[in-house]
Amino acid sequence: MGLIEAILITVITASTPLLIAAIGELVTERSGVLNLGVEGMMLMGAVTGFVTGYSTGSVVLGAIAGIVAGMAMAALFAFLVLGIVVNQVASGLALTILGIGLSGLIGANYTGLRLEQKPPAIFGALADLPYAGKLLFSHDFFVYAAFALVILVAWFLTRTRAGLTLRAVGESHTSAHALGVPVRRLRLYAILFGGACAGLAGAHLSLAYTPFWVTGMTAGRGWIALAIVVFASWLPWRAMAGAYLFGGVTIAQLQVQGFGLGIPSQLMSSLPYLATIVVLVIISRTRTGSSAPAHLGVPFWPDR
């Protein structure tokens, strides 16, 4: 029981950054914008979060700084793809490269430092409840923020007018424009939301998951988040399932390494990435067609 509980708790922790980043990207893609810069935005969130958290001694301030950094990167991306209508794929890749370099520069003097503060556990004493108390209530606020995001985004997309409009824009920006929907403004909001989530996900890595900063510490999680969005066929609840699947694989390979089965550790470490490829292949083989937003990645010029 104790071992399983410990594993489950680590799976939840490992899945949280994937889930937060994926939910943000899901909203961005639902609006018809493909932002491949998740990795870069996460790194900027991670380094800014760590530097702020280390300097102020506050994990919460660090998380907020991470969100702001992610949004700043997203704003740059939005300027490129909405403002001057640059190719979205190229801009997203450039954003990732920029994030890798810039975060390394900012964090150069913080490498190897350790953050002493722990993120506050918001449910406090509830964690002492018998049976599932620890499993349900012992986590930091990032974990609950991730849950809340899934619920909020699912509700927003299906139940609200703004969510319906956002989906409509992603399906056909020309039709939405003809209806008088402010296409670019909605997309800007969606891109910024995606950036905020990526920044928060990055901050979780450097503030809670491993409380220190290492250059390139996201280690491809931004790309996995992108894969999760496809895996989830752009649905929030499935994104949660996907994030836990990938988080589970990450932890499973660590556990298997711990048993000492004699499999090279490099092979085991690559499991989450291999799993991503396998899942994407299976999805693209089994579905007759993707349920991707029809105008995903298509540039939009208003005809005025």
Binding site: R161, L164, T165, R167, A168, E171, S172, T174, S175, A176, A178, L179, V181, S291, P293, A294
Partner: peptide, 17 residues
């Protein structure tokens, strides 16, 4: 050229306007 959204339902399409 219809200004409809293929992945949405009839009611959702109408609600948008």
């Amino acid at each position: 050229h219809f200004s409809l959204f293929e992945a949405l339902t009839v009611a959702e399409n109408i609600a948008l306007a």
